[in-house]
């Protein structure tokens, strides 16, 4: 049920080390999120669009992912332009849209979408288990890493279990409706899954103990930093630098043309 369709590939993003990717992606997103200057946000956003072809990910699949975030952004578009004081641009009925409001909504749109493109190209090009080991090497608490890996492992199992119970109920003519019967059935189904999960959790722990588990998962992949890590770090710092000094660069280019 959980697609990791971006995690296999042969681009520089796929070959780079997960630790490096996590750090540079966070830096990139942080710069994007904390920029309030339209030019700077635009530059950071446009470069984030170029990351997708560099990571050799299909745009179509990414667009599907963008729908979710844009439903929240759309929600804000209904309010922000009309509730921000400033110079009026147009009005619908008695609601006046202001330039400042539209600019803020536009900035949020760019930032939200840009952040997704960065996550998809940097983080989603790593499989979840590798990501867990990267968190381990980045000195996240072992319990946290273990929780992350085991949760990932059980999501599929539990989702399947819920579907199984749901199908059994459907065969008995259970139809989801807005009534107490539906809520009761779903609650009991859910409680049953929780109880089974609880027992499964205990069994799993005992099974792990038998195999000498000491509270930590070990990765057999001894990753060393490679040239690809240098490439993606360079790309990121290049983009951040351009966005920071965009005015100087523009000034310099103008001088050259003259």
């Amino acid at each position: 049920m959980l697609e990791e369709s971006f995690s296999s590939g042969k681009s520089i993003f796929h070959k780079a080390d997960a630790r490096v990717k996590i750090i540079v992606a966070c830096l990139y997103i942080l710069t994007l999120v904390l920029s309030y200057d339209l030019d700077r946000v635009l530059i950071l956003f446009i470069f984030s669009c170029f990351l997708i072809p560099i990571a050799r990910i299909s745009f179509l699949k990414v667009l599907k992912r963008l729908i979710v975030v844009n439903s929240f952004v759309l929600f804000l578009w209904f309010f922000l332009p009309f509730s921000t004081p400033g110079t009026p641009v147009f009005h619908i009925y008695k609601f006046v849209a202001t330039l400042q409001g539209i600019e803020q909504a536009f900035l949020i749109t760019l930032k939200a979408n840009g952040a997704i493109l960065i996550i998809v190209s940097f983080i989603n090009t790593t499989s979840i288990p590798l990501l867990g080991y990267a968190l381990d090497k980045l000195k996240f608490p072992p319990k946290f890493v273990l929780l992350f890996l085991l949760t990932y492992r059980y999501i599929g199992v539990i989702f399947e279990e819920f579907n199984r119970l749901m199908n059994a109920a459907k065969i008995r003519n259970f139809i989801l409706k807005t009534n107490f019967h539906t809520y009761k059935t779903i609650s009991y189904m859910f409680a049953m899954i929780l109880i089974r999960s609880y027992e499964r959790g205990k069994r799993v722990y005992n099974a792990m103990l038998l195999r000498g588990f000491n509270g930590r998962f070990y990765s057999l992949q001894h990753t060393r930093l490679s040239k690809y890590d240098v490439y993606i770090s360079f790309i990121t710092f290049f983009i951040i630098a351009i966005s920071m000094f965009n005015q100087y660069i523009l000034f310099f280019v103008m001088k050259l043309i003259q």
Partner: peptide, 24 residues
């Protein structure tokens, strides 16, 4: 440490809950 696997199954159940749509 022995509670972590238990917590993990509850966390994944919580994750799955967000995928279950209830009619309203």
């Amino acid at each position: 440490a022995q509670q972590v696997p238990l917590m993990a199954v509850l966390t994944s159940t919580f994750f799955v809950a967000s995928l279950i749509h209830v009619p309203l």
